[in-house]
Structures are given as C-alpha cells and as structure tokens.
Amino acid sequence: MTDFALTRPDFDVIAGWVQPGERVLDLGCGDGSLLKRLIETRGVLGWGVEIDDARVLAAIRNGINVIQGDLEGGLKDFEDGAFQHVILSQTLQAMRHTEDIVNEMLRVGREAVVSFPNFGYWKHRQAILNGRMPVSESLPHQWYNSPNLRFFTIADFDAFCAERGIVVRERKVFDEGREIAEEHNFLGSTAVYRLGRPRAPR
C-alpha cells in the first residue's frame, strides 16, 4: 500500500493545508508515509492511528508516532481540540460509523481533512449503465472483495455536510493525478475536503 499511498494526489493537497509546527493526527495512517512526508516537508508534529498489526510495525519502522487502535470505536482517548488537523485519507468509505468519525474528527481537531473515491465519477456511472459495478483506479476492488462499505458521491458528501452544519472550507477534486476545475461530481475520481465547524459569532 506504500507505493499507492505515495502517488495519491491528495497528499500534495494535504501538505499545502498544514502549517509547520502544527499537531496533525492521521487516522488509518498505514505505514505512516503521509505523516512522514508531512513531518519531513512541512515540519508538523504528527501522530497516527492504525489498527492493522503489519502496518503498525511498518509505521514504527518508519519512525512514526503510531498508536494502535480502532477508529470504529471513535476517538475517545483524544481530547477536544488536541490537533490542528485530523486526516482521514481514503478510509471514510471503508468505515461503518461514518457520522461518528466525522463528528469525532471535528471534536479533536480544529479542521478535518477527508479524502475519498467519488462514486459519481463518469466511468463509474458508465459501468453501472452497462450493468456492472465499477472497477477503476480509485475503486480498484471487485464487489465481492472490496473493503469499502459506503458508496457515495461528491454531491452526497456535500449534502451530508450541509445537513450537519459542517462547513466545507475547501474542496479539491482529481482525476488521474490532475486537478479537475469543473463538473467535480462527473469528472473527478477522488475528492479531498477541508472541513470545519462554523466559527462562533463574536
């Protein structure tokens, strides 16, 4: 998963959103590649959460502050506002407790960064029209072996945020490594969001 992770376009976007010296929590951090890159290029202070034994080992080998734990149980061990950014990269679609984790991210972090594959991507729509479940670079698994539990589009996620009063501060959408300027929900295969809570009125 390392090689795949390092080529993910959302890494560059996330690197642009964090500031030196910030505290960053990466949920489902895998072998820690993203954190390692953020630490080395952006000078953040990073911690990661990972459940899988082999990935925890790989992250320790990478010198990462990895904490073994299960995201489905929430982030109860972390304090409110403990981090500037909490990242969930290409993992939300594989989680059962979708609402809980987004709420938890915005509790422990000032901002949440979420990236996911867009089910509304035109190739995926075309596959469905042809009567088959989509298989693509961003959805590489077959229906029977996919780790993904949730299939949603950029429009779905926008509605999800709007209904819960979550502010979309920024959204960047990509296809084949290039940023998509318009028709995000049709032309984009992956999306990266920067989310926050409405700022309290003064």
């Binding site: 034994d53 992250a59 990895v66 073994q68 734990g69």
Partner: peptide
C-alpha cells in the same frame, strides 16, 4: 493507553502497539 494519551497531550513522541 493512559500513558500514551498523556504523552500525546504533551506533544511528546510515542509509538504504541497492542499485541494479541
């Protein structure tokens, strides 16, 4: 985890593994 959480709170470096 109490040890780990206190260290994270302080911004200290810590790795944590729970072995089956």
């Amino acid at each position: 985890r109490e040890i780990v959480d206190a260290l994270v709170h302080n911004g200290q470096d810590v790795a944590y593994a729970e072995i089956k």
